[in-house]
Design a protein around this nucleic acid. Structure first.
Lengths: 218, 218
DNA sequence: TTGTCAATTGTCAGTGACTGACACTAGCCT
DNA sequence: AGGCTAGTGTCAGTCACTGACAATTGACAA
């Protein structure tokens, strides 16, 4: 376990780290990502630019610090799903349960409202969206391995883990996308949308869509 | 329709444009993307750096010039699918048919072998992968609209077009990924892999995977 | 053919993200 | 107290990219 008091040096580091995130998100969401320079951030936190780049590998990375945490929450939730559950159910229940706990986890670092604004910004900033999608692709690989393990399969021998995860992640991406465009921008909102969209996956892959399922505005 | 001989000015532009692509891909695939500077490219083509950035918005963009063409091939193929075909079948047949015509289309601009090496490079270069995924996301939106039109639906009223396309694109991404990692790096190879992986999508979403489908190494 | 117009290109100066090298400061530990 | 070292600042430099303006060169009419 971790030491109760990690020493002054560690605490100072943590403070600088968190301050950089908070200030960066604040500036990003008010002025826009591109119109915010790293120099502005470090000036507000009173550290050198060099220090910023020792904490974060790039300007993009600081924008994803909180998002990263939320994703880890999901991966952990997936790991805790009962082995009897089928692959897709495990994925489904893992997201839903991670949304349940995301609120508190986020609030520990930044105001939830700031996180939500940040999420919107990611979707509408090309450079951040690209970064986000690449990171998601990496996470997909992790998830596919977990699913393969659950089923006692080899990720490189059976394509189903990667395929199932790719389809699942695709729907999750659309969910996030529609969520930021919709009106109910709350954590409950995305939870509901997640369930609704996952329910649509099966029918959407059916040979034809003759059954009317309209009226599903985001 | 276009004039048979578009004038000296136009031809010169086309030559510079194509030369930049060819030289860039050649340098990228031999030295690596990051280790190639824009200055090296423009020096080899004997134009100024400013000119490069008038043709391509970024260093990444030049790496996707050919890829972009192949994607347009797919979108066109989808548009030509018979309306009676169900959404997923239309998508499936459109990719397969576009792979059939991709070879010639590519050869018109660069050697196919150079294109294939370039594709591999994209998958293994973080900055390019990010760019690629973002562009793919944009293409998905286009495709979703086409599907919605085919079915007489409103993309913003019914989530199925975006969901189906997201799942489909996810599988296509995995296909490309596995293809570059595998041994059969030919256009026939990716065609075969496409069919195989799409066939796995349904089973992969089933409640459980008790049926053995191993031995499917990429 | 020549002169004019407009499209292309080049030059220059600058911004902003990022990196390596090295000196410096300040917790930590004996 | 004093040495060790993790963390920080400074500096100089690279590279992608951009706006402004000057120079060039096809296109096209007189």
């Amino acid at each position: 376990m971790t030491v109760p008091t990690p020493g002054l040096r560690e605490r100072k580091k943590q403070r600088t780290h968190d301050a950089l995130i908070r200030v960066a998100l604040e500036l990003f969401t008010t002025q826009g990502y591109e119109r915010t320079t790293v120099d502005e951030i470090v000036e507000a936190v009173e550290v050198s630019q060099r220090t910023f780049f020792r904490y974060f590998g790039s300007k993009e990375e600081v924008a994803f610090a909180v998002q990263h945490m939320v994703e880890e929450l999901f991966v952990r939730a997936l790991g805790e799903r009962p082995p009897a559950e089928g692959p897709f159910d495990a994925l489904r229940h893992a997201v839903l349960s991670s949304w349940d706990h995301a609120g508190e986890a986020i609030a520990d670092v930044v105001p939830v409202e700031l996180y939500l604004r940040n999420f919107q910004m990611i979707e509408s900033t090309p450079a951040l969206l690209a970064f986000h999608l690449r990171r998601s692709a990496e996470t997909e690989e992790t998830i596919a391995r977990i699913i393969a393990d659950r089923e006692g399969l080899d990720v490189d021998g059976d394509p189903r883990p990667r395929i199932a995860v790719a389809a699942f992640s695709g729907v999750m991406r659309v969910t996030g996308q529609m969520w930021v465009r919709g009106t109910d921008q709350s954590l409950e909102g995305i939870r509901a949308l997640t369930e609704r969209y996952l329910d649509h996956l099966g029918p959407a892959l059916a040979p034809h869509w003759r059954t009317g399922a309209a009226g599903d505005a985001p």
